[in-house]
């Protein structure tokens, strides 16, 4: 007998959420969604969640199970049991709960809308034939186009937890689907917009979205692809790009990081206000003896590092 510990919330009845436990024999080969349905249909009809296709393509049934977002229809319930034969279900994170496991997706869709999620081609002539796109070009957008908008990545994104302004992994993956599309004519404008605050450079590279994504979308990989295209397009005039370039140059020159230089270069040399804002932190580091040495030294094998860069054509 397994225990399903479910976070219940119904503001019509009481303002505070609470946990309720249900006991259920998990039928053979049952998915988590099958079990939720068994609970709803035989134990408590008021249990509320979204679902539709049962085949991991509609993206309705994402919930948190034992603290992590997943698609309920995609996972065998047996595999999710913890050491106490319990599965804890909670609503997705980073969105407001409406009732039980149903959350408000409004901010999620608002952010999808912000990335101009549609093709912007050069010509709007009536199509006589398909435009050509090579299998290689197709492969650049294949993964991003598998996204089902389930919100699992959005739920568990660590940046979103502290920064509402961040577009989030799903919207950025959607953006890459157009940045990488050989048929789209707005690549430069897109990567410029995506380099603004809230865009790709605000990602903390934790990789949680890749862990949670139930499809091959792997949002963080898509975010890195946008970063690469942005740098290739010379979109350098922002903290994120300057930070990445400073990192790159420091390693290329000395084989390690020049920690005095990176914050300054990231802010930009002529960004007086930005530079001044660094001062208090710098001062505190100095007083706590955490400041890096004033004179930066290269590592001994710096020539090897330079050879690697040369080999890579950089």
């Amino acid at each position: 007998m397994a225990t399903f510990k479910i976070k219940r919330f119904n503001p019509e009845k009481q303002p505070q959420p609470y946990y309720e436990e249900f006991q259920l024999d998990i039928p053979p080969a049952a998915t988590l969604l099958d079990c939720m349905n068994q609970i709803k249909w035989t134990l408590d009809g008021s249990l509320t969640y979204r679902m539709s296709c049962r085949s991991a393509i509609c993206g309705s049934c994402a919930v948190k199970s034992n603290g992590h977002a997943l698609l309920a229809c995609q996972r065998q319930a047996e595999h999710l049991l913890d050491d106490n034969d319990t599965i804890t279900l909670e609503p997705l994170g980073n969105m407001q709960p409406i009732k039980d496991l149903v959350v408000d997706f409004t901010p999620f869709w608002d952010k999808i809308n912000q990335v101009k999620p549609y093709l912007q081609p050069d010509d709007e002539v009536p199509p006589q034939k398909e435009r050509r796109q090579s299998p290689q070009e197709f492969s650049l957008i294949d993964d991003a186009s598998t996204c089902i908008m389930c919100g699992a990545c959005y739920s568990d994104c660590n940046t979103l937890e502290v920064d509402d302004n961040f577009l989030g992994p799903a919207a950025l993956a959607k953006a890459q689907r157009f940045v990488g599309d050989s048929r789209d004519a707005q690549t430069h404008a897109r990567v410029q917009a995506l380099s603004e605050p809230g865009g790709v450079w605000d990602c903390t590279h934790c990789g949680e979205c890749v862990e949670r994504c139930p499809k091959p979308t792997r949002p963080f990989d898509r975010i890195k692809e946008i970063m690469t295209v942005a740098l290739e397009h010379g979109v350098h005039d922002n903290n994120g790009a300057r930070h990445a370039l400073s990192f790159f140059n420091s390693v290329k020159r000395s084989g390690n990081l020049n920690e005095n230089r990176i914050p300054v270069e990231s802010m930009g040399f002529f960004n007086i206000r930005g530079l001044l804002s660094l001062l208090p932190a710098g001062l505190r580091m100095f007083l706590k003896r955490k400041a890096p040495p004033v004179i930066h030294h290269s590592i001994d094998e710096v020539d090897d590092v330079k050879r690697i860069f040369k080999e890579l054509g950089q």
């Binding site: 199509p127 006589q128 398909e130 050509r132 796109q133 090579s134 299998p135 294949d142 186009s145 599309d181």
Partner: peptide, 19 residues
């Protein structure tokens, strides 16, 4: 089909880039 392609629908391609 050509209209869908022009709208941006993603299709698998032949080696010469057709649908």
């Amino acid at each position: 089909i050509y209209e869908l392609e022009h709208m941006g629908c993603v299709f698998s391609r032949t080696p010469d880039g057709k649908i």
